Lab assay of single mutants.
Amino acid sequence: SPEVQIAILTEQINNLNEHLRVHKKDHHSRRGLLKMVGKRRRLLAYLRNKDVARYREIVEKLG
């Protein structure tokens, strides 16, 4: 489901952010981070168009 995919991506994004705080010059990982953020944004847009209630619920849960 989109909610699960968004939750997994959010966790991976948070982990990668911590990694990049330590390894500032790791541009390869930064590119992966940007791809993940874009994918999460697309999934959220899809969910917002399909079911606003589910969209609001996941945004509330994940912050």
Rank of each mutant, 00 (worst) to 15 (best):
L62I: 12
L9F: 02
I6K: 01
I13G: 01
L33P: 00
R42C: 12
L9I: 06
N49S: 12
R42Y: 09
R48I: 04
K24H: 11
D51V: 02
G63I: 15
A7D: 05
I6T: 01
K39G: 01
H19T: 04
H23S: 04
R30E: 06
L43C: 03
H19P: 00
I58H: 00
V52I: 13
R48W: 09
H23F: 04
V37F: 08
A45R: 10
R21E: 05
K25P: 06
A45I: 10
A53W: 04
Q12D: 03
G63C: 15
Q12R: 11
E57H: 05
L44A: 01
I6L: 04
P2T: 12
Y55E: 02
Y46C: 11
R21T: 06
R41L: 11
V37S: 03
H28E: 12
K24N: 12
S1N: 09
N14I: 10
E11D: 07
S29I: 14
N14K: 09
L62M: 09
A45E: 14
H23T: 04
K50T: 15
M36F: 04
N17V: 15
K50N: 12
Q5I: 12
Q12V: 08
A45F: 05
L9E: 00
L43P: 00
E3N: 03
N49T: 12
E11Y: 05
L44M: 05
S1V: 06
L20Y: 04
L34Q: 11
H28F: 07
L34N: 09
T10Y: 03
K24V: 10
R40W: 07
R30T: 06
E57A: 12
K25T: 12
Q12S: 06
R48F: 13
V22G: 08
E3G: 04
R30D: 06
K61W: 15
K50R: 09
N14G: 04
H27R: 08
R42H: 06
R48T: 00
V59S: 02
V4N: 09
R40Y: 06
N15C: 14
K61R: 08
A45P: 15
R54T: 05
A53T: 12
D51R: 01
E11V: 09
N14R: 11
K35S: 09
T10Q: 03
L47D: 00
G38A: 14
H28S: 14
L44K: 00
V37Y: 13
E11I: 13
E57N: 05
V52Q: 12
R56Q: 14
K25C: 14
I6A: 01
G38C: 15
L9T: 01
N49L: 14
N15M: 13
H28V: 13
K25E: 14
E60F: 04
R42L: 10
I8V: 07
I13S: 00
R40P: 00
R21M: 06
V59G: 01
N17W: 15
S1G: 08
V52N: 11
L20M: 07
H28R: 12
N14A: 06
A7P: 02
M36V: 05
G63S: 12
V22I: 13
R21D: 04
Q12K: 13
Q12W: 12
N15I: 13
Y55V: 02
R42A: 10
D26H: 13
I8R: 11
I8M: 11
R41I: 07
I8A: 09
H27P: 06
E60W: 04
R40Q: 08
I8F: 13
E11S: 07
R30I: 13
N17E: 11
V37C: 11
H23M: 04
E11F: 06
N15Q: 13
Q5P: 03
R41D: 10
T10A: 03
R31Y: 06
E11R: 08
R21W: 02
L20R: 02
T10P: 00
M36P: 01
V22W: 09
V22N: 10
L34T: 06
E60Y: 05
E11K: 08
H23I: 03
I13D: 01
H23W: 03
L20T: 03
I13M: 01
R40S: 02
R21V: 05
G38F: 10
N17Q: 13
D26K: 10
A53Y: 06
R42I: 11
H23Y: 04
R56F: 12
I58Y: 04
R56C: 14
S29R: 07
A7H: 09
N17P: 01
H23E: 03
L16A: 05
T10K: 01
A7N: 07
E57D: 08
E3P: 02
E3H: 03
V4F: 09
E57W: 05
R31H: 10
Y46L: 12
M36D: 02
D51H: 04
N15R: 12
L44G: 00
I8S: 06
R56I: 13
I8C: 11
V4L: 12
K25F: 09
A45L: 11
S29E: 04
K50Y: 15
L9W: 03
Q5A: 09
R30K: 08
H23G: 03
R56Y: 12
S29Y: 06
R30L: 14
E57T: 05
T10M: 08
L62F: 05
L47N: 00
D26Q: 05
L47A: 00
V52S: 10
E11L: 08
N17I: 15
Y46I: 14
A53Q: 12
I13P: 00
V52R: 13
N17S: 13
R30W: 14
V4Y: 15
L43D: 00
R48E: 06
E11H: 08
